[in-house]
C-alpha cells in the first residue's frame, strides 16, 4: 500500500503497510519528536515501548510511536512536552 501517508505536524509522511509511526518518522528524517524534559528531547530509543522516549499524540491520544502502527490520515503531533 505504497502512497499512504499520515500527518506529522501537518506534514505528509509516507509509510509502508504495517510500519510503526516511529519507523516512518525516522525514514522521513525526523530525529527529534518534540520537546521533553530538558535537557532531553522526545525521540526513538528502545523500540519496545519501555523507555517512553518516543511518545507522540496520535489523533489526540498519547502513544509510543514505536508500538503504534501508522495508518492513512492519522494526525500525529508532538506529545506536548515534559511528559513524565
Amino acid at each position: 500500500m505504497s502512497g499512504a501517508t499520515f500527518f506529522w505536524m501537518g506534514r505528509s509522511i509516507p509509510f509502508q503497510e504495517g510500519e510503526s509511526i516511529a519507523s516512518a518518522l525516522d525514514a522521513a528524517g525526523m530525529v527529534s519528536f518534540g520537546p521533553g524534559v530538558p535537557p532531553s528531547q522526545m525521540r526513538f530509543f528502545c523500540g519496545i515501548g519501555a523507555c517512553q522516549c518516543c511518545l507522540v499524540r496520535v489523533d489526540g491520544a498519547t502513544r509510543e510511536a514505536c508500538l503504534t502502527a501508522a495508518a492513512a490520515g492519522l494526525e500525529v503531533e508532538p506529545a506536548g512536552g515534559a511528559h513524565g
Binding site: 512536552g81 515534559a82 511528559h83
Partner: peptide, 8 residues
C-alpha cells in the same frame, strides 16, 4: 493516583 506531566 498520580498522572504524568501535563503542563498545559
Amino acid at each position: 493516583l498520580v498522572t504524568e506531566r501535563a503542563p498545559e
